[in-house]
Design a protein around this nucleic acid. Sequence first.
DNA 1: GTCTATATACGGATAGAC
DNA 2: GTCTATCCGTATATAGAC
Lengths: 227, 227
Amino acid sequence: MDYADFQKKINLSKYDLCREVYRENRNSIRVKKEYKVVKNLERIFSATLRISNRKGFQAMSMRNLSREANMSMGALYSYFASKEELLAMLQNQRRAVTKRILDERIAQESEPAARLRAAIRTHLYLSEVMQAWFYFSYMEAKNLSKKEQDLAVASELYTEKLLADILNQGQIQGAFELRDPQLTASVIKAMLQDWYLKRSKYAKRRVSVDQYARFVLQFVEAFILDH
Amino acid sequence: MDYADFQKKINLSKYDLCREVYRENRNSIRVKKEYKVVKNLERIFSATLRISNRKGFQAMSMRNLSREANMSMGALYSYFASKEELLAMLQNQRRAVTKRILDERIAQESEPAARLRAAIRTHLYLSEVMQAWFYFSYMEAKNLSKKEQDLAVASELYTEKLLADILNQGQIQGAFELRDPQLTASVIKAMLQDWYLKRSKYAKRRVSVDQYARFVLQFVEAFILDH
DNA sequence: GTCTATATACGGATAGAC
DNA sequence: GTCTATCCGTATATAGAC
């Protein structure tokens, strides 16, 4: 399973993601024609991520967004009631997709070594498909409302716990040998995050996501299989 | 050399840092009595880091800062000409200290293995002493002026290159065996950054900087000494 | 040196025309 | 559904009193 296979199997086009957002927010969105909502939500979210990742969500004014999304201020406000609600729509949906796919793909494996590989590869591939959002979510977390912050932290810890559980299970079954599963999970997480946080550095050096995945797996396995 | 030794040897009190800032900015600071400048700069910088790390530098208004630093708006503006200049003072000085100490302590070792240990430990210890600033610098980099962004990236790459050079040197001398020194340096950097980016998580789990340093060293050494 | 008061610009959000 | 025009609050920065 490499990145190309992953992309084929998992359907995650921008429009699919926006269609899900629309269906979950039918009540609050005043515009009613699905094709139009999906098209405009895609513009809005893309522009939001583009501007925010350049200079920060709070520094993005609604006028910026209106210009970048090619919509008037009035039009924007028929898709959400406030800047904060725009954010919540985006966050909820992306978080849900991430969790769903991560859970699915880990559950397909039963051996600890295979589960660990699935977790690492899937996380890297997800962050490759939705790089802009992963980056946004990490960098903006602390600037958002208390509620959004808590959700972000919970989502962080959930991923870390997925890894820690696999490591613990592997240790019990004798597949891995390691001293501190919790700390090991933390630093694996740090390596996974580096992939989407330093995207342009890796792009410049022509490191592909598959190369990075192989490298991280080797690095981790040298630690948990050997000493 | 553990963290307690490091603290004793390296003098890095908040006031020492602010005194350096004052001496480098005598021209632009209108207040002239050193003890007063140092005291107020300390207030200003502490408050800046405190507020910015909670909700972002751009979201910090000068009124916020004035309240948190216990100084009037007018008083603040006699220490800098603009919010941007305040930032540049802080960044320049901290970056310089970090580079100076990192270089010094690596230069004291000659064997690759010892140099690597010195680099990792020193970086972790520096980020422990100046956690708020390291966090700030990472999280705000993209929101600052082009000039500040470039300086931040250069500083990032400098640290990574320090690590990569040590790894390369070790490989040539036969001390390390590794396939990709550049990628190895990148993921080590990611682990070092996790320490100051997730400070409160590690604090909650009662992981000390010395424990974390030992763990990272083991993790890295399993990869470059074994396979 | 530090304060209060204020100039001026820009922020989010909405009303009402089309 | 979308647009333009506008309300009102808050931002940075400064002037001038003490």
